[in-house]
C-alpha cells in the first residue's frame, strides 16, 4: 500500500516537475538571452491564468478561443514589458535590474489581487474530473494533459533553438551580442522576442495549473520554485532547467512521503528542495549543467 502511495507521489512529482521545468526554461530563456534575472516569472503564470479565466468566465468566450487569445495578449505584454521597462535599463548595474524585476513582481501581484480579488476562482470544467487509471495509478485527466503540454513545450523549445532561424539568432545573442550584431541580428528584436516567448509559455503553464488548482495569487509561488530548479540545473542551461524542475518536483513529493510515513513534521516538503539546492551548490557551484567556458588545449 505504501509502495503504491510512493509511486503515486512520484508520479505527481513527475507531473509537477515537468511544469516547474517549463517555467524554469522560460526563466533561463530570459536570463540567457538578455542577462536579466526575472523575479517576476511566477507573475507571468498569474497574469496568463487570470487573463484566460477572465475571457472564459467574465467575457463568456469559449475556451478554444480564449486560450489562443491569452497567448496573443501575453506576447504583446511580454514585448511591451521589455520595451518600456527593461530596454531603458540596458547597461545599468545588474542589481538595479534585479530590483526592477522584484518591483514588477510585487506590482503584478497587487494589481491582480486588486482586479480579481484574493479568492481562488475555479476554471469551468474543461476536462472530466473523474480520475483515469494509468498502470494501476489514479491520475486526473487534467494532470495528464499538463504532462502532455509540458512535454510538447519542451520539444517545441528544442526544435526552436536547434532549427529555427530566430532560435539560432537567440543563441548567438546569448553567446555574444557583438557577434550577433556582426551577423546582422537585431539584438533589440531578440530581447523582445525572449520576453514574449517567456511570457507566452509561462502563461500556458499558468492556465494548466489554474485548471487543476483554480486561479489565485498562489500561482506566483511557481516563480519561487523555479529558483531552486534553475540553480540546480545551472542558470544558463535549458536542459538543466528541465532536469532541475524534475528534481525539485520529485523531491517535494518524496519529502512529503518521508514526512507522512516517519517524520510527521508537516510541510517539510515545501522546503526540502532548498536543502538539496544548498548541497548541490556545495558540490557543483555552477549547477549540474552550468556552462564553463570552452578551453582549447
Amino acid at each position: 500500500m505504501s509502495g503504491n502511495l510512493l509511486t503515486q507521489l512520484l508520479l505527481n512529482g513527475l507531473i509537477v516537475g515537468t511544469l516547474y521545468g517549463v517555467v524554469a526554461m522560460c526563466f533561463v530563456l530570459i536570463y540567457k538571452s538578455t542577462q536579466v534575472v526575472n523575479f517576476a516569472q511566477g507573475e507571468f503564470l498569474l497574469i496568463g491564468a487570470w487573463t484566460c479565466w477572465w475571457l472564459v468566465v467574465e467575457a463568456g468566450l469559449p475556451f478554444w478561443f480564449s486560450f489562443p487569445l491569452t497567448f496573443v495578449f501575453m506576447m504583446v505584454f511580454g514585448i511591451a514589458l521589455q520595451m518600456v521597462v527593461l530596454r531603458p535599463l540596458i547597461g545599468e548595474p545588474i542589481i538595479s535590474v534585479i530590483m526592477v524585476t522584484i518591483g514588477m513582481s510585487l506590482f503584478f501581484q497587487s494589481i491582480t489581487k486588486w482586479i480579481f480579488g484574493a479568492d481562488v476562482q475555479p476554471f469551468p470544467e474543461i476536462f472530466p474530473v473523474k480520475a483515469v487509471d494509468v498502470f494501476g495509478l489514479q491520475v486526473q485527466p487534467a494532470y495528464l494533459m499538463s504532462l502532455v503540454v509540458s512535454v510538447l513545450v519542451m520539444i517545441g523549445f528544442a526544435w526552436f533553438f536547434k532549427y529555427s532561424r530566430m532560435g539560432l539568432a537567440m543563441r548567438a545573442t546569448a553567446f555574444n551580442q557583438q557577434v550577433a550584431q556582426s551577423l546582422g541580428i537585431s539584438v533589440k528584436n531578440v530581447f523582445a522576442m525572449a520576453w514574449a516567448i517567456s511570457a507566452m509559455v509561462s502563461a500556458l503553464a499558468g492556465v494548466v495549473v489554474g485548471m487543476v488548482n483554480g486561479v489565485s495569487g498562489a500561482l506566483s509561488f511557481f516563480g519561487i520554485k523555479v529558483f531552486p530548479a534553475v540553480i540546480v540545473g545551472g542558470l544558463d542551461s535549458i536542459i538543466g532547467a528541465i532536469v532541475g524542475g524534475l528534481i525539485i518536483g520529485l523531491l517535494e513529493n518524496f519529502a512529503e512521503y518521508v514526512d507522512g510515513q516517519w517524520l510527521h513534521l508537516g510541510n517539510l516538503y515545501t522546503v526540502a528542495p532548498f536543502y538539496v539546492l544548498i548541497i548541490i551548490l556545495m558540490i557543483k557551484p555552477y549547477g549540474l549543467f552550468g556552462t564553463h567556458k570552452i578551453e582549447r588545449v
Binding site: 532561424r165 539560432l168 539568432a169 543563441r171 548567438a172 553567446f175 555574444n176 557577434v179 551577423l183 541580428i185 556552462t291 570552452i294
Partner: peptide, 13 residues
C-alpha cells in the same frame, strides 16, 4: 559561436 556546431554557425551566417 563556440557553443554551436559548424553547421549552425554557417546557418547563422
Amino acid at each position: 559561436v563556440e557553443d554551436m556546431t559548424c553547421l549552425e554557425n554557417l546557418r547563422l551566417g
